[in-house]
Design a protein around this nucleic acid. Sequence first.
RNA 1: GCCCUGAUAGCUCAGUGGUAGAGCACUUCCAUGGUAAGGAAGGGGUCCCGGGUUCAAAUCCCGGUCGGGGCUCCA
Length: 662
Amino acid sequence: MSPKGTAVADGFSLFTDRSVVAMRVNGELRDLAWEVTDTDTVEPVTIDSEDGLSILRHSAAHVLAQAVQRVNPETKLGIGPPITDGFYYDFDTSEPFTPEDLKALEKEMQKIVKQGQRFVRRVVSDDDATAELANEPYKLELIGLKGGADAGSDNENVEVGGAELTVYDNVDPKTGEVMWSDLCRGPHLPNTKMIGNGWALMRSSGAYWRGSEANPMLQRVYGTAWPTKDELRAYQTRLEEAAKRDHRKLGVELDLFSFPDEIGSGLAVFHPKGGIIRHEIEDFMRRELLKNDYEVVNSPHITKGTLFETSQHLNWYKEGMFPAMHLDEVTDAEGNVTKQGQDYYLKPMNCPFHNLIFRSRARSYRELPLRLAEFGTVYRYEKSGTLSGLTRVRGLTQDDAHIYVTDEQVKDELKKQLEFVFATLRAYGLDDFYLELSTRDPEKSVGTEQQWADAEQTLREVGEESGLELVADPGGAAFYGPKISVQARDAIGRTWQLSTVQLDFNQPELFELEYAAADGTRKQPIMIHRALLGSIERFFAILLEHYAGAFPVWLAPEQVVGIPVAAEYGDYLDEIISRLRAEGVRARVDHSDDRMPKKIRTHTKLKVPFQLIAGEEDRAAGAVSFRFRDGTQLNGVPVDEAIARITAAIQSHEQVSTAWSE
RNA sequence: GCCCUGAUAGCUCAGUGGUAGAGCACUUCCAUGGUAAGGAAGGGGUCCCGGGUUCAAAUCCCGGUCGGGGCUCCA
């Protein structure tokens, strides 16, 4: 502890650079108005730093709240923290916000920003705060939480996280009048003018108070804020780019899949072009499985409930399952049951079936590791509000595998699995990964502490040995065992949880699985669940967005389209195309009566990797001209060479968007 | 599941109490063309479904289905 120094200055005199919006004093974020002493360590916080952006966004949230209460003073305040790329503020209001309301609020916010109100920090006692905020029931609740054992989430800490309670007053710079106040830990920008014009309100939605379904729903307004208008524009452009590659939009444009209303929510049909992509994804996966010592199995989509009683799924996840079909019950004329019926369920998971396959006969240690793989279609009754395109559906096909190993084999097998995962994902064009280790949630787990500790340790070692970044996810494990998951970054930097490798010491026990060990005793195997692509539907969506619909040649639904310069050259192209088709290439000639530039436009929009154009010059030379997706071209390529290059590009899983360099 | 919001031609969308529209796509015909839209004509809609209000409903009200944005959830 250093002796208390003498107050010497505030941040305004220490930092004249106008991009400094706050400072760190002895590691703590402080307003520039904070008085520092000669023994303090002081660092500037600039607006474009991570802390600076959070402060900017948090201040913008305050301005939003002030605007809301100006428009409707009856509105009660929830919380208003900064978040990635922006901020939100929750309100309890009699009428939800309409888009017009948001426009009006933006205008009101602009006035507040222009006025340049100062953010002034004021320390208050719990009692004073309680009196001052008597009309703000949610804030009172937060004050009550402060200092409790469970101090609430980070977002709530933004309001009351400090050692002492503070209120920020928004003060009119001319009159000194307090325009508005909010309970807040701070720090804030010195004044609202510094929020500038790089912000916008985005949307509104409902959100449960303190994130619990049991609590009332508040109205949340989301906004975004950046140091400059240019950065705001860049952010908006980024959102537009992401929207352009939205798989739901591309799915319609490229005629890949649809969700007919007649079938029901979350249930997709794949059209021929989506179907062939899916076929290629699965076909490649199957070949890799067989090369890597998996056995391919198959199981039905429905089963009697007893199976899921054994597996405990009916106990733990019944709400997530489609309700039972009650079958085979017989009643007499009086309605008395004369024969008990049976409950049948659509399967939400494949593992119990694989356990039955394991158990179908005596197993020897010589068979282990036994790797059972299936593209198993499962049905889950996901809540209606959580469904989203192909990424969250009610009917999905998992590329599922269950691997049964001895205790000694666990580590080697996990290693092998991770390597297999990386190699496979790379073949689909995803190569930027990190790992996440999900560990025990003591509230929700079976098995002994020792089992968990050992398993988590093994997973951690394997993860660390992979050389990839390993992120902890404490409490994220399922109840039956820890898992390691592979997160992949896509072309625009978003991360997706793909593969999971999960240990399970519960099911082998529930199903009484055993094998004969070398010494003749019976032992229980350890089970590893592993999904490599996750669900095929979701993986399909991820690839579609990753490539923005411009798939590598092997996955492209149409690989080659021949475009004759005039109808006369159609026959010549037909010959070339039939040679490609004989090689298994998806190729056709566009014989429609559109003009050539129109055909080029059509197939460019459909993102066909190779357009083969032929006219007099090409025919005379026994050649074709390539046009690639980006508009580059390669003229007069001899036909044999063209075919060889196309088939090679398919073989190698290569992405081809531009002309090959010689 | 909860809050908000939407549904009009295959697609994108205009129309908002009084006979249903555009562009693209599709069909046919003309045009025979060298690198992102040649021309003309034509077909195509229980305006999501069911109730209600009204002389009259695609339009207003209620319920449902499906979509979208969030919250919660995600074995």
